[in-house]
Structure formats: structure tokens, C-alpha cells
């Protein structure tokens, strides 16, 4: 319930109007949205119980490896609607397969739709969505130089909260089902990050400083 309370209000996209090229405009609008979402996510991470007790190095490391996963939980969550064929990045930024392909994000479309279908099939609750976001963010495989005790405590606390929640609903097995969706999330995030790096390097799509820093962090 603490995580639900601290869940930020959804952001709206600011339509880019710097170019006549439709798919570039979409991409620039998306990059601007992601950059702002990233900023909000960094603020939100500090609200995860135990996060602020980690060292600065640990906090940076978790965010650098988990930010795209955390953001994609939100995109997949919003994209579950009906049998929708769109990726809902924001209420006013919904991209179908053709638009994603034109923007160079065909692979991202496939994977995140897959993820959305999986969340939809298990009828993921808002509580589970925020838990998954927090867990994705704290489940880094990066090697951490500091003592791992506080991170372990943070992860244990989240797992316990998830177990408690599922047990209170009388469906304890859902905790495991939720965790089993994490590999697909990580794979989708890796593909998405790679797609944006490629668009930046090969196609010279301008990317905001914070977003670029995070894309190049690993």
C-alpha cells in the first residue's frame, strides 16, 4: 500500500513539432516522455522502503541496470487494455505495430506486447504491478562493491510484502507466477535499450542527456 500511494501520476506526452517527418516526430516525442519518466522513476525509487539506506553507489547501480525494466512494467501494464494492439506509452501516445516499425521499434513492439499479454492473462492487479516495478528495479545482477546486506534486506522486504499480499488474497502461488515473468521483462528491456542506442548512433536521433546517460551506463 505504501508503494501504491507513492505511485506517480501518469505523464502525458508532449507532441514534438520540430520536424515534418512523422516517424521521427513520434520517436522524439517518445524520447522526451521516457526522459521525464526516468526522472520521476529516480524520485520514486527513493520511496521504496530501504532504498535510501543503500549506498549512493548501490542506488546508482540498481537504477542503471533496472530503469528500463521498471519503465516497461508501466508500458506493458497500460497496454493490456482489451485485445488492444497498441503500446500505450502514455494516454496520448499510443503506437500500433506499423508506427513502432516506422520508428525503428518493431522488436520492442513484439516483446512488450508479449509482456502485456502475459500480464493480461494473469489479470495482474495494480498492487502486483507496483511490486513488480520495485522488484525489477532492485533485482540487479550488477556486481556491487559495497556490503550487500542492506540490499538483501530490501529485496527480502519486497518479497515478504508480495507474499503477504498474495496470501491475503488466498492466492499464494501468484507470487511465483509474477516472478516468473521477470526474465521476459529483462529481455524486453535489453532489446528496448539496444533499439534506442542504435537509433541514436546510426540514425543520429537526438536523445536527452539523462536518458542517454542511462542508455550508455551498462
Amino acid at each position: 500500500s505504501h508503494l501504491l500511494l507513492t505511485e506517480p501520476a501518469p505523464l502525458a506526452a508532449n507532441q514534438d513539432d520540430s520536424t515534418d517527418d512523422g516517424s521521427l516526430r513520434t520517436l522524439l516525442t517518445l524520447c522526451d516522455l521516457l526522459n521525464r519518466e526516468l526522472l520521476v522513476l529516480i524520485g520514486w525509487a527513493k520511496q521504496i522502503p530501504g532504498f535510501s539506506e543503500l549506498s549512493l553507489v548501490e542506488q546508482m547501480s540498481l537504477l542503471q541496470s533496472g530503469w528500463m525494466e521498471a519503465l516497461l512494467v508501466g508500458v506493458a501494464w497500460r497496454s493490456q487494455g482489451r485485445a488492444g494492439e497498441e503500446l500505450v506509452f502514455a494516454g496520448n501516445l499510443r503506437l500500433d505495430e506499423a508506427q513502432c516499425r516506422a520508428a525503428g521499434l518493431a522488436g520492442v513492439y513484439q516483446e512488450v506486447r508479449h509482456l502485456a499479454a502475459r500480464y493480461r492473462a494473469m489479470k495482474m492487479s495494480p498492487e502486483e504491478a507496483v511490486m513488480l516495478k520495485a522488484m525489477a528495479l532492485t533485482n540487479s545482477d550488477a556486481e556491487l562493491p559495497d556490503s550487500p546486506d542492506s540490499l538483501q534486506r530490501l529485496q527480502d522486504g519486497l518479497q515478504e510484502a508480495l507474499q503477504d499480499y498474495e496470501c491475503s488474497r488466498g492466492e499464494p502461488h501468484r507470487a511465483g507466477r509474477l516472478l516468473m515473468s521477470l526474465p521476459l521483462l529483462r529481455q524486453s528491456a535489453a532489446r528496448a535499450a539496444e533499439a534506442f542506442r542504435r537509433l541514436h548512433r546510426q540514425h543520429r536521433v537526438p536523445i536527452h542527456k539523462l536518458l542517454l546517460e542511462m542508455l550508455n551506463a551498462k
Binding site: L39, G43, M214
Partner: peptide, 15 residues
């Protein structure tokens, strides 16, 4: 950390 200036700053300054 020099390479990750913005993130470093955001975390340190309490946003």
C-alpha cells in the same frame, strides 16, 4: 561516477 553525472546529482540532491 564522472560518466554518470546527472544520475549522481539527482540521487545526491534529493531530487
Amino acid at each position: 561516477q564522472e560518466k554518470h553525472k546527472i544520475l549522481h546529482k539527482l540521487l545526491q540532491n534529493g531530487n
